[in-house]
Structure formats: structure tokens, C-alpha cells
């Protein structure tokens, strides 16, 4: 638990401004995600340009952009443009770190896809919105750094033999999640993890046989992550199935978190005692999933040992993990 005094923070902030005028790198680096206003799906290939400075970049597959401004121009504007969408302009003064930019489609898009000669329906199971993963609750953002090795959520399709087109998950930087100036974790945008599609064990209802596994690597701060499975042509034979996230406890995924305990260090010359906190760290592993308030929460399980699944219950929050199917 961290407590702070306003006087100490003000003094430190003053020093930071006085001696480190260039320390506010957040104003020199613009990053965020661009999504469709109607579908909230990420838009890759969006051109992101600083109009006056004339530097630009493009969004990646997750709609994520990271634009560095080497020679900042006052009153500049960020311009987001892409074919099929209306151009959006934002003054840099309105920029907020890792915000979502929504682009309005130029044409109406049908909620259908063509597969061969057949039109198929598109359905998102356990859909969550950007607002769900951006909501700050009374205790702050809800971020789930699971200590277990895997988390699996049960989905139910309207029929058998649906095609699993993609999986979406909400992901958050734990340092940002705390929403305070003195984050007690390091920040790591990189993560590598496994996505499993599992059958339901007919006896226990727990995750059963693994039907499919995909290795996912992310190297950006995208918060809304879409894992495209369209090329994998996954046909789910049953109505019910699990989608699981398995954490890899590898150096690539490490985030260091500070917990601490008090101790007495020394007595100063003036007789005062300086009690320092013994630094106690723990190492967490990306990705950090997002919890959001949901009245009806899907059944979920966590893997506590190599082979043992345990029912996972949370009284208030569902995990931002959805599955898009075609049928």
C-alpha cells in the first residue's frame, strides 16, 4: 500500500519541471489504436500524420500506431485517414496517452461475410466494448494478472460446426492500470502467449481436449487485441467450446512489481529514525487481461497446475475475451 503527502509530490513535481523540461516524453510520442466506430474492430493501414511537422506512420494489424515527434511544432494536428473511412483530425492538445480513435465508415457495412457463394452470419460471442475495457471503477481499472498458468472461458454457439474466425481480448499495461503517477510496476509492451481452443470435458464440464493452439506475439501497447483465425479454418464440432489464454513464464513477458515491508535502517545524527521499506518484488507475466462489470458472466476455469483445472468465479467482473464465429 502506498500513501503519499501532497507536499512531497508537489515539491518533486516542481523539481521535475525545473530540471527536466524534456522529461515529458508522452507529448513527443503519440500512440493509440484506431478502430471502426460501428464495429469497434481495429483498422490496419490507417495513415497517421502530424500535419505541421510532416511526419507520419501507419497502424499495424491491431490498428495500433506509435508516432514519434522529433521536432514538435506548436498547435499541430494528428490526421487519421484510410480508404473507406472519413478522415479524422485531432489537435495534439487533445491527445491522451493510448487513447482510442474511432473512424466513421464512408459506406454502410453489412454484418455478413461471403464464403464462396454463400453468405454467412457473423456473431460475436461474449462481446465487450471499448468502453468496457476503458472503464475506471472505484478501485481503479480492473486488471487480472493471473498467477495461474491458464485462463479458459466457455462459449456457446447457436449451432454445431461454426467457423471460429477470430478471438478478441482486452489487454492493459499494469502500470497504466493503476492510474497514478507513481506506478509500482515496470512497463513492458511485449508479450508472447498461447491461445488454445478446447473441447468441453463431458464428465466435469472443465476444459478438455485441445483442438487447436496458436502462438501469439505482440510488440506494442494495443489494448484491444484481435487474433485472426480465418486462415486456420477452424470448425468447432460442438456448440460449446473453450477459448483459453496460456501464459508463458519467460523473460520476454516479465513485468516487475514492487511490494514492500517496513524496517528500521538507522538513526540519523539529529536523532531521527529513518524507517525504510525493504523492497519486496514479484515478477508478473504479460499479457494482463481486463475485467469489466457484467451481470451475466460466462463460466470460466483456471489451470492451477500442469494438468488441473479449477472453476474460476468472480462476483462482479467478466474477463474481456470474446470469440467471433461465422455460421
Amino acid at each position: 500500500m502506498v500513501t503519499r503527502t501532497s507536499g512531497s509530490i508537489s515539491f518533486i513535481s516542481f523539481l521535475a519541471i525545473l530540471f527536466f523540461p524534456a522529461i515529458s516524453y508522452a507529448q513527443d510520442v503519440y500512440e493509440g489504436q484506431v478502430i471502426s466506430k460501428t464495429t469497434e474492430l481495429a483498422i490496419p493501414g490507417v495513415s497517421v500524420v502530424l500535419l505541421k511537422e510532416k511526419v507520419g506512420t501507419q497502424t499495424n494489424d491491431q490498428g495500433y500506431y506509435n508516432l514519434t515527434s522529433p521536432n514538435k511544432v506548436p498547435n499541430d494536428t494528428l490526421v487519421f485517414s484510410s480508404v473507406g473511412y472519413q478522415t479524422f483530425r485531432q489537435p495534439v492538445s487533445d491527445y491522451q496517452k493510448r487513447m482510442f480513435i474511432t473512424l466513421e465508415p464512408s459506406n454502410t457495412q453489412l454484418n455478413q461475410v461471403n464464403v464462396g457463394d454463400r453468405k454467412m452470419k457473423v456473431l460475436v460471442l461474449d462481446k465487450f466494448s471499448v468502453a468496457d475495457i476503458k472503464t475506471v471503477y472505484s478501485q481503479g481499472y480492473v486488471t487480472k494478472p493471473f498467477s495461474q498458468s491458464a485462463y479458459a472461458k466457455l462459449f456457446e454457439a447457436p449451432q454445431e460446426h461454426v467457423v471460429l474466425a477470430s478471438v478478441q481480448l482486452g489487454r492493459r499495461d499494469f502500470a497504466i492500470a493503476r492510474g497514478n503517477a507513481y506506478a509500482l510496476t515496470t512497463s513492458n509492451k511485449n508479450t508472447r502467449f498461447l491461445i488454445h481452443i478446447l473441447a468441453v470435458d463431458p464428465y466435469t464440464g472443465a476444459p478438455g481436449k485441445v483442438m487447436f493452439t496458436k502462438n501469439i506475439t505482440l510488440k506494442d501497447n494495443s489494448q484491444l487485441v484481435k487474433i485472426d483465425l480465418s486462415e486456420d479454418k477452424l470448425v468447432i464440432p460442438t456448440t460449446k467450446f473453450f477459448v483459453a489464454v496460456e501464459w508463458l513464464r519467460i523473460p520476454f513477458n516479465e513485468v516487475i512489481k514492487l511490494d514492500y515491508a517496513p524496517k528500521t535502517v538507522k538513526i540519523r545524527k539529529n536523532g531521527s529514525r529513518l524507517t525504510t521499506d525493504e523492497s519486496k518484488y514479484s515478477v508478473l507475466y504479460q499479457p494482463f487481461l481486463v475485467g469489466f462489470r457484467q451481470v451475466k458472466r460466462a463460466p470460466a476455469w483456471v489451470k492451477i497446475d500442469d494438468d488441473i483445472w479449477q472453476h474460476y468465479t468472480d462476483p462482479y467482473y467478466d474477463i474481456a475475451l470474446s470469440a467471433t464465429i461465422h455460421y
Binding site: 503527502t5 512531497s8 536523532g271
Partner: peptide, 17 residues
């Protein structure tokens, strides 16, 4: 990391970040 140190003087006690 920024941590809070509790400083106990003969006459007072205060926190310092």
C-alpha cells in the same frame, strides 16, 4: 520505484516520497 519513507523525528513524524 517511488516509495514512502516514514521519518520519525524527536518532535514529529512525517512521510517522504
Amino acid at each position: 520505484f517511488n516509495v514512502v519513507y516514514s521519518i520519525t523525528d524527536p518532535d514529529s513524524q512525517y512521510d517522504s516520497t
